[in-house]
């Protein structure tokens, strides 16, 4: 590949001969980044892959032993871990579905001209820019059974959102919907504004109803970008740690990332945590793959 011309510039020209060669510059610009990412992301993962086959515990000094696939076998047959995955799946479905509905709904409402539209759109985007851990913590006060404004406004008395095992997970999901619906809204708005206006005009001339126009014109044209939002939010919701961790300690809201954190840094079951981390990692990479595929598709249009 070294002999390939790197740009449109003629490699034999005088301009290309001055200073460092394009090849040198290219390598100088790209290699440090790749090395950095390999050293601080890939190497640690290889390191932890090794530990995932041992019974290593980081808080003890006695030597660890190679245990083969035992960690993986134990994890895959552990009911507790399975329940964490089921909790995570419920959380992903509820919170992503909520975000898609609220976010797309908001975008449909915003997709018209009115005074101060820019300001209102930016205000609506504020929640997603804020720290999930810190804001999530504050939702404890909003949800408080004794003096929380939410229970007061909705007349829910002393309903304990976050310490009730049945509702804790959904309370976290509601906060997540509040934080991330704006993300779906932002992407949907971009999709909606890209729908050619003449299609709507043609539909109006044909006296097409609102529903018909929506399902035959709007949805098909916006769906690629909605899909991007859906995949991205699914991946993020699957990885959720901070918001749930600062909001509640209910075991019924113990997402897989929280389980992993506890196993690694509270029980110090390091070898097994590395194995669990790998199981999670493979799932995330599968979704990432899908995400990049669709991202590139939208990009090409």
């Amino acid at each position: 590949m070294a002999s390939v011309a790197l740009t449109n510039l003629d490699p034999a020209s005088r301009a290309a001969a001055r200073g460092w060669s394009d090849l040198t510059i290219r390598n100088m610009f790209i290699i440090p980044t790749l090395v950095f990412l390999i050293v601080f992301n890939i190497f640690p993962l290889i390191y932890s892959l090794g530990y995932s086959f041992t019974n290593f515990a980081a808080n003890r000094t006695e030597p660890w032993q190679f245990v083969g696939l035992q960690n993986y076998r134990e994890l895959l047959t552990d009911d507790h871990i399975w329940s964490n995955f089921v909790i995570t799946a419920k959380y992903v479905i509820v919170s992503v579905a909520g975000q898609m509905i609220v976010g797309f709904g908001l975008a449909l409402l915003l997709n018209r001209s009115f005074p101060m539209k820019g300001l209102i759109t930016t205000l609506l985007l504020l929640p997603m820019m804020m720290s999930a851990a810190v804001v999530g913590l504050f939702w404890q006060l909003l949800y408080s059974p004794s003096w929380g404004p939410i229970n007061y406004v909705f007349g829910l008395g002393d309903f304990a959102w976050l310490s009730n095992p049945d509702s804790a997970l959904y309370a976290v999901a509601i906060t997540d919907i509040w934080m991330w619906s704006p993300f779906v809204m932002l992407l949907s708005l971009a999709g909606l504004s890209a729908v050619p206006q003449h299609l709507y005009e043609a539909a109006a001339i044909d006296r097409a109803g609102w529903w018909y126009t929506f399902t035959r014109i709007t949805l098909p044209l916006v769906s690629p970008i909605l899909l991007i939002a859906l995949i991205f939010r699914t991946m993020e919701a699957f990885k959720t740690f901070d918001i749930a961790y600062t909001m509640t300690t209910q075991p019924t809201a113990e997402l897989i990332a929280i389980r992993l954190y506890k196993q690694a840094f509270q029980q110090w079951d390091t070898g097994k945590s590395c194995a669990l981390a790998y199981i999670v990692l493979i799932m995330v990479l599968a979704i990432t793959n899908l995400y990049v595929k669709y991202l590139n598709k939208v990009k090409e249009r």
Binding site: P44, L45, Y47, K239, A264, S273, V280, L285, N289
Partner: peptide
Amino acid sequence: FFILSTRMLPPVVVAIPMFL
């Protein structure tokens, strides 16, 4: 893709070996 995928790694997954 490799560069982007490093962004998607769950922090807790990376944190275990980095901590050690």
